[in-house]
Every structure is written in structure tokens, then in C-alpha cells.
Amino acid sequence: MTPLLQVEGVTRRYGARIGCEDVGFALWPGEVMGIVGESGSGKSTLLGCLSGHLAPDAGRVLYDAGSGGGAQDVTAMPEAARRRLLRTDWAFVHQNPRDGLRMNVSAGGNVGERLMAVGARNYGAIRARAEDWLGRVEIDTARIDDRPSAFSGGMQQRLQIARNLVSGPRLVFMDEPTGGLDVSVQARLLDLLRGLVRDMGLSAVIVTHDLAVVRLLADRLMVMKGGQVVETGLTDQVLDDPQHAYSQLLVSSVLQV
């Protein structure tokens, strides 16, 4: 078996300011990697570079689809190939659902569009799958023909997640996916994601500041500060025995419920 994603020396600067610097790791099929750190630590910049939304100034992001064609450097791919990847094998759940949804297309259309991108053509089948996924993220299927602009923020986020997962991607990037959600729905989504990881071998890179989410969902954890990775390891090791001063501060700052 080979890594799904091999990240080497990824660096992105904004002028003189560092977005993220010299980040490297390997993600294997079925693994969930969590990235934590305070705001401005470079988490979202890194996620953007990994997923092809941002061009890194240095470094490589090698993706191996496992089809025998070997690993390809995503940062050097033609734009069309990268866009195809983002519509099929990959998914990206944005922090702000408005960035990941088509606001003027119905909820069912938002979910169905991803299915059509991977070849689905039968209207009845697409609609049935869309209804199934709306149910899984706890959106009343009676709202299938409504536009997301008529949804609450939490519903929009759930719709975005359904849209991204419906096509059975192999790799999902998530930027604060549960940030704006009610805790009850958050729990449902965590369970849904864990099931997909276990049953379909889904891999994910999840940026969040919620350590409880990370503990339940991520196998491995990366702690970022000032654009650099200060600590990496098994999730429970980093949370139970943090080595770096910043990780220790982060873990000890969580309020107990």
C-alpha cells in the first residue's frame, strides 16, 4: 500500500508574512488527520495548498489515486485535471457553506450536481440519492426543492457536507466543518464520517479548533503555530502527552463540560 497523499515542504507566503512553512506529512487510505492551532496559525492556508485552491510557493503535494498510474503532483497539474479531481475523487467542505454551495440552485440540485459529475444520468436515481443524503444530514426531504439561501446557516453547512460526500470521494478536506452546527447535529455528522471512514476507507484532512471533535474523529493530529507544524503524532498522544509548549497550552486551555 502507498500513501494517498504525500506532502513535501509545502510553503506559502503572503508577501513577507508566512502563511505556512515547510509542511510535510503522508496520509494513508482510511486515515483522518486533524490540524489544530489558533486562528492565523496557517491551518486554512495549508488546507488550501493541499487541495489545489492555493498555489504553494514551494513544495509538492503528491496524490496517488491507486489506479496504478503512480502519484501525481497536484500543484503541477493542469487546471482542468485539478478541477476534475475536486469534482470526483476529492471533496472540500468550506468553513462558510456559501463558498461550497450553489446558492441559486435547489438543495436537491446541489447534491445531484456532484453525482452527475461522476457520471450519474438517471433523474429518478439522482433524486433518490439526494433524498437519502438529505436524510442522513437531517434535512427534511420536503425542503429538497428549496434553495440554500432559504436555509439556516447550520442547514447550509449540512447541505454542503451532503453535497460533498454523496459521490463517495476518497479524500475529503474540511475547514471547520462542525463550527456552526448545533451539538446534536455535530454528533450525527461525526458518526456519519466515522462510518464512511470505516466502511469506504475514506481519508480526510480536517482543520478545526475543537479538540473534542479531533479526539473522536482524527487518528493523527498536527499542531500549527505561526505557519509551522510544532507537533505531530497520534491524536491521543498529542492530547494526553503534548510535548511542545504551545500544544500544552492548547490542551490545558480547554474548558471541561
Partner: peptide
């Protein structure tokens, strides 16, 4: 980490004092 995760899945079980589960 990958090898430790596989070890925990197949070989090494741990009953801690606290139940940590996804709610619901």
C-alpha cells in the same frame, strides 16, 4: 502512527476508566 493504529485495531485492546464515544 499508522503501525500503532493497526496494532490498536487488531492486537492491543484498552479498557480505560472513561467511556469516550460519539454522542447519539
Amino acid at each position: 502512527p499508522r503501525e500503532i493504529l493497526a496494532l490498536r485495531r487488531e492486537v492491543l485492546g484498552y479498557v480505560s476508566q472513561f467511556l469516550r464515544v460519539v454522542p447519539r
